[in-house]
Amino acid sequence: MKAASIKVLKEELSHKTSNELLELCLSLARFKKENKELLTYLLFEAANEDQYIKEIKEEMDVLFLEINTKSFFYIRKSVRKILTSIKKYIRYSKKKTTEVELLLYFCLKLKQFKPSISKSSRLQNIYDTQMRLVKKAIEKLHEDLQFDYTSIIEEIESTF
Rank of each mutant, 00 (worst) to 15 (best):
Y74W: 12
T150C: 08
I152M: 06
L43S: 04
K70G: 10
I138N: 00
Y149P: 05
R76V: 10
R80M: 09
K111C: 03
N19A: 14
L26E: 13
K36H: 07
T159F: 12
Y89I: 11
K111N: 08
K16R: 07
Y149S: 02
E34H: 05
L28K: 10
K36A: 09
R122E: 02
F72S: 00
E34A: 11
K114H: 00
F73H: 11
K70H: 06
F44H: 14
Y149G: 00
D128G: 04
S118W: 02
E139A: 07
L42E: 02
H15C: 14
E99I: 08
M131H: 01
I75S: 05
E59M: 14
L42W: 11
K94G: 02
H15V: 12
I152L: 06
K2E: 15
E154M: 08
E34F: 05
T150M: 07
K135A: 07
Q51F: 13
R91P: 04
S14C: 14
E155Y: 10
A47T: 14
S120A: 01
N19H: 14
I138F: 01
Q112G: 09
K57D: 02
S151D: 07
K10T: 11
F160H: 11
L13E: 13
K136W: 05
I156F: 03
Q124W: 02
K95D: 03
R76Y: 10
Y149A: 05
V79Q: 00
D128Y: 06
S18D: 11
V79D: 01
F160A: 11
L65S: 15
F113V: 04
N19R: 14
E101C: 07
L65F: 08
L21A: 10
